[in-house]
Design a protein around this nucleic acid. Sequence first.
DNA 1: TTTTCTTAGTGTAATATTTACACTAAGAAA
DNA 2: TTTCTTAGTGTAAATATTACACTAAGAAAA
Lengths: 233, 233
Amino acid sequence: MKKGKKYSYLYERPALAADTVIFGFDGETLKVVLTQRKKDPFKSRWALPGGFVFMDETTEQAAKRLLLEKAGLKNVFIEQLYTFSDMDRDPRERIVSVAYYALVNARQYEISAGRDTLKTEWFSLQDMPKLAFDHSKIIKLAAERLKGKVSYQPVGFELLNEKFTLPQLQALYEAILETPIDKRNFRKKILSTGLLLALDEKEKNVAHKAAQYYSFDKKMYKELGKKGFHFEL
Amino acid sequence: MKKGKKYSYLYERPALAADTVIFGFDGETLKVVLTQRKKDPFKSRWALPGGFVFMDETTEQAAKRLLLEKAGLKNVFIEQLYTFSDMDRDPRERIVSVAYYALVNARQYEISAGRDTLKTEWFSLQDMPKLAFDHSKIIKLAAERLKGKVSYQPVGFELLNEKFTLPQLQALYEAILETPIDKRNFRKKILSTGLLLALDEKEKNVAHKAAQYYSFDKKMYKELGKKGFHFEL
DNA sequence: TTTTCTTAGTGTAATATTTACACTAAGAAA
DNA sequence: TTTCTTAGTGTAAATATTACACTAAGAAAA
């Protein structure tokens, strides 16, 4: 037993961590926040923001704390993704990680580097560097999950500005689903759900016809989020 | 530091467990396997089969081992459900549990009681006893997950006999979705997916018109399981 | 052997949804 | 005033969904 190790158990226990996949949308592509590691293992490699779960917090609370500590994000939507438990996923020792994904407005939040990271940056999903640990796998699963989510729940409130145009919403859907969508059919369908409120306002300073702003009908958004609705085009 | 506690760490660690929600179908209702606890806490209460995760196995491997040890089940379909990490979910100490759900053929498998359980039995989902820990919550989430699964993936292969009739398959869908389905529309839709192979064989010894047997087209089942398909009636 | 009971199996018409597709409108910049 | 760019709109054809009632087959009962 090494000196200074204060907590002892009858059976060996893995360490417990939380990792977060932070999705943002810049109007063009889906992005994910990565942090560059300061220390070994995988020193200077990019990785998901993550860290150990403390004894006085649930894994979700840990994920939210880490979002704040590592990326400066507060009050964001998160949902549990999956728990990764391969014995060798961390070369130091066994660490079981509960992964969460978060949806944030990439334009609204300035991402700030955390304490033990060199840099923290947005990376486009189609253009990812080589990642530490099994983090590529985690991101891949998160992207699939988000794709699934879009097809049965409204998505967008968390990722867009409060006011947004239909072309913006469509671009978001196309980025998540990784497929082009017919403009007219998209509008018809999304408007028929009753999710959207047309605002009395248009885009400004665009060198083409200005698009109308919409916002989500909060009540409807919540309702369809709970009971689900099928969205496919 | 108490005597005999051999594993020491710098930081406190929760224990890691796996719990399993085993779904079966008896032709009428969805059932779940519960075991009656031999020891405190919650002595003699019904609970989900579960136990600690060892250091040389993933949580999924642990869930599979526990399925065998606690219920005598081998080679069954399992999928990760959710990780439960409330600090007080176990009164003894903090135990984080990764929950899995399994789908098995309730008629084919004899359930056998495990070592430290009094009894192991099937319980109908609508008729559950009071459960230990947060296991009611886990089962509720598992049932919702299964409901969701049915609407975008084929389900039935794991729960029915290799040969089954359309009324049996329909009864399964009705049990999972908790809603009656129109017979003609169900047949039309399920047959149009190409999932089913009509066999050259009928039910025997039934006091009414014998139903035709079908089996799943394995290739199609796998394909639709991977890429998903929308099923709703 | 006939009748009864029970569940399997079948089709259609009305309605709703999905799909494919091309032009005009608005705004700034050249 | 012309050009460039993106917003916004409608329809017809095809497909999918829904609601709904009778005949067929088999064993059991009379």
